[in-house]
């Protein structure tokens, strides 16, 4: 009887150690629903973007000449759209992760999440700078591939600090970005696949794997 008790205690002790090691080194509250919501935002954004582009090319063809005014208006519209989509995706995915952390009784902003945030931010900021610089030179063709590649790199880097599964999402985004380089002009479709479809797909897998009861 005593032996049994002791075995239970020891097992519990090892479990505690393991839990603390995991909890202190990785941010584990990342929710699959965050991926799904970010993907949904991206898809809606891509549809609106396609509509704006269609309208633009429609007028371009009917006028039969190139208008600089129209083009700069298009650039402002698309940049604005990108910012709104990013904000919506960020806020909605933050919400679901915050909910999950609350359920687990863990803090959202602690040592692990701070580390995850910074390590994700570094490739993203580098990518943002790179893309803005390209746009400065009116080089818009590589925007979608650059988004995908830098985002993929950010995920691969971040996977050391959270659920390791996001590493595979990162690989897929990088591969998609590189393939997109071979099909310049279809950027929006690749962008919608990478940020929309892959996020939803990945989020659903994560949700089934870790959260479904």
């Amino acid at each position: 009887m005593e032996d049994n008790n002791q075995s239970g205690d020891t097992l519990q002790e090892i479990k505690d150690i393991r839990r603390i090691m995991e909890r202190s080194s990785r941010f584990i509250s990342l929710s699959g629903l965050s991926g799904i919501s970010a993907g949904a935002c991206a898809l809606i954004g891509a549809f609106i973007g396609r509509y704006i582009l269609k309208n633009y090319y429609g007028t371009y063809n009917s006028h039969g000449f190139f208008s600089g005014d129209d083009f700069s208006r298009l650039k402002i519209k698309l940049t604005g759209l990108a910012l709104v989509v990013f904000a919506a995706a960020f806020i909605s995915s933050f919400y679901f992760t915050w909910q999950k952390a609350k359920k687990q009784g863990l803090p959202v902003w602690d040592y692990t999440s701070k580390r995850l945030f910074w390590n994700m931010l570094i490739p993203l900021l580098a990518g943002a700078g790179f893309i803005l610089a390209m746009l400065q030179y009116d080089e818009w063709r590589f925007v979608a591939p650059a988004c995908l590649i830098f985002y993929g790199l950010a995920l691969v880097n971040a996977s050391k600090y959270t659920l390791t599964d996001i590493r595979y999402l990162g690989y897929c985004e990088i591969a998609l970005g590189l393939i997109n380089m071979l099909f310049i002009g279809y950027g929006l479709y690749f962008w919608a696949t990478g940020f929309g479809v892959l996020h939803i797909f990945y989020g659903a897998i994560m949700w089934f794997k870790y959260e479904k009861k």
Partner: peptide, 8 residues
């Protein structure tokens, strides 16, 4: 403390 320091 030791468990945390082992991984950080």
């Amino acid at each position: 403390v030791m468990s945390i320091l082992v991984v950080n």
